[in-house]
Design a protein around this nucleic acid. Sequence first.
DNA 1: GCACAACATCGATAAATCCCGATATTGCGA
DNA 2: TCGCAATATCGGGATTTATCGATGTTGTGC
Lengths: 96, 96
Amino acid sequence: MVAAFKALGHPTRLAILGWLKEPESFPPQDRPAAEVGVCLKHIQARAGVSQSTASQFMATLQRAGLVTCTRVGQWSHYRRDEDAIAALGQKVALNV
Amino acid sequence: MVAAFKALGHPTRLAILGWLKEPESFPPQDRPAAEVGVCLKHIQARAGVSQSTASQFMATLQRAGLVTCTRVGQWSHYRRDEDAIAALGQKVALNV
DNA sequence: GCACAACATCGATAAATCCCGATATTGCGA
DNA sequence: TCGCAATATCGGGATTTATCGATGTTGTGC
């Protein structure tokens, strides 16, 4: 739980999680984003950070359980874990 | 919002917020904790940190809007801001 | 006014985080 | 197999956070 809050306690990571609510707003890709998630390259481009930073941001969000990663060929696609996010919201409202 | 997550992204601060759900579980004080909040000294004692660290923890939680402070005489009492916490939970579940 | 108690703030050091470029890894196509 | 493209990981310098003791501030009681 602390890990999730740490992950959200960064403006860019918080923004990324918000962007992922509209996967279609990213440029098109081989496999549709609504299906497998958004390709790291597109996230990196929108965030305006280096490739390694983008990769680490997503790894942090993933370790926090807020996103999942689907690897297709050479692409890593990231998607919100809506269940985990909703559960976290519940915890904040009820158990924190 | 980022500030709130940063504040929660620390195990001790997160624990304190949880403790404040049961103000009665703290030692008795002049003014009842259920009314004005828990005295800083009691929070400090339970957290096992120095006085200055406890003070800064509560200041961080206060700046994040998660607790309110009621000063009575020489005592600072801290209380959860239930509305703000519930609103944050809503945001996590819906808007993040 | 004085001494003391509770709390806030300051100053400093140790630890963690941020963010990058460089390098390693893996998959794809020629 | 070779080279390239996408991603992950490594190593490090800059910045931020954590935490303390020391000091400042304010209220209380004598």
